[in-house]
Amino acid sequence: MIEHFTQAYVTLPVAFLVSMTGSALGLLMARHARRHDRPGRRALWLAVAAFAIGGTGIWVMHFVAMLGFAVTDVELLYDPALTALSALVAVAAVACGLVFIGLGRYSRVKLAFAGLFTGAGIAGMHYMGMAALSAEVELTHRTGYVVAATAIAVGAATTALWLSWRLERTSAIWLAAVVMALAVNLMHYTAMFGVQVGGDAAEDAHGAHSMDLIFPMATLTAIVLLVLIFAVVTVPTDEEMQTEARMTTIERELRPGVERSTR
């Protein structure tokens, strides 16, 4: 028998809160990226936004939710390398989408292509994470649920990319983060409800138990969240950036006069 909430439903709210926080931080970073005219500086902030959305908002949510997944009388183990690789896939997919939509002129065609690619990458991350799961029984995925989960991932990714390009007000960003977290959780559990148990696996279970991965994952997630929150808090506001731009302009205008007076 398959159980998705073995931790007394603790994993569901925790996964949602982590996803919402990561999504909000990523959208705030994307807003800051739009304030920069130089492509290099904008790409840097978009990469940080991808780390927040893809790494924390999506992958950590997936890992937390998987802590509640269990099969009766079956030990579930995880391949650490493949699990870590799935995290990189999530970040890379979101980064590609954000950079593609965030550099150059915005268009609906670009949004559609970026959403499709990013959504496929997110779905790929999920099933790569499932491939990292090792058990004494065979776990298979029903095709209809795979298609539905992938469609939700594409829709959620497209919405996230559109929001990252449009939103300015902080209150609207947090509201959008709630919507994104709901979509990410919906995609995850849609895919998980499509899992079914078959016969015995072809090989013995191997890897690490999820409990062995909780401490390093929690520590890493806490550090990343603190760094991202610090970055959001310390980025200059619109007024500060405008003041800095005016001061730079004034200095450039005064520089020729100062140079002539010193000759």
Score class of each variant (00 low, 15 high):
residue 158 T to Q: 09
residue 181 A to N: 03
residue 178 V to F: 14
residue 206 H to W: 11
residue 194 G to A: 12
residue 188 H to Q: 03
residue 222 A to T: 12
residue 167 L to S: 10
residue 157 A to W: 07
residue 168 E to I: 07
residue 197 V to L: 06
residue 205 A to I: 09
residue 180 M to R: 03
residue 226 L to Y: 06
residue 162 W to A: 14
residue 229 I to N: 03
residue 226 L to E: 07
residue 194 G to E: 04
residue 179 V to W: 15
residue 219 T to K: 05
residue 167 L to M: 15
residue 209 H to I: 01
residue 175 L to I: 14
residue 185 N to A: 11
residue 216 P to Q: 10
residue 221 T to D: 09
residue 219 T to C: 12
residue 236 P to W: 00
residue 200 D to K: 14
residue 191 A to H: 03
residue 186 L to E: 05
residue 212 D to I: 04
residue 228 L to D: 02
residue 170 T to R: 13
residue 188 H to G: 05
residue 187 M to G: 00
residue 166 R to V: 11
residue 162 W to M: 13
residue 191 A to C: 05
residue 175 L to P: 00
residue 191 A to P: 03
residue 215 F to P: 03
residue 227 V to T: 12
residue 164 S to I: 10
residue 160 A to H: 03
residue 227 V to L: 15
residue 205 A to Y: 11
residue 168 E to D: 14
residue 172 A to R: 08
residue 216 P to V: 06
residue 158 T to L: 09
residue 191 A to K: 03
residue 170 T to E: 11
residue 217 M to W: 02
residue 158 T to P: 04
residue 217 M to E: 07
residue 211 M to F: 13
residue 184 V to K: 00
residue 211 M to Y: 11
residue 219 T to A: 13
residue 217 M to N: 07
residue 188 H to C: 01
residue 201 A to G: 06
residue 200 D to M: 14
residue 175 L to V: 15
residue 209 H to V: 02
residue 156 A to Q: 04
residue 173 I to W: 03
residue 212 D to C: 03
residue 158 T to V: 08
residue 209 H to P: 02
residue 213 L to Q: 02
residue 180 M to V: 15
residue 233 V to L: 11
residue 192 M to S: 00
residue 170 T to S: 11
residue 230 F to Y: 12
residue 235 V to F: 12
residue 223 I to K: 02
residue 222 A to W: 05
residue 210 S to V: 12
residue 201 A to E: 05
residue 236 P to R: 10
residue 193 F to E: 01
residue 216 P to N: 11
residue 190 T to F: 05
residue 232 V to R: 03
residue 191 A to F: 01
residue 235 V to D: 09
residue 216 P to E: 06
residue 221 T to V: 11
residue 170 T to A: 10
residue 224 V to Y: 01
residue 171 S to L: 13
residue 226 L to A: 09
residue 194 G to K: 00
residue 187 M to T: 00
residue 198 G to H: 06
residue 203 E to Q: 15
residue 227 V to S: 05
residue 171 S to D: 14
residue 232 V to W: 08
residue 194 G to P: 08
residue 196 Q to R: 10
residue 195 V to F: 00
residue 212 D to M: 10
residue 165 W to Q: 08
residue 173 I to Q: 11
residue 222 A to Q: 08
residue 189 Y to P: 01
residue 229 I to R: 02
residue 161 L to I: 12
residue 159 T to I: 06
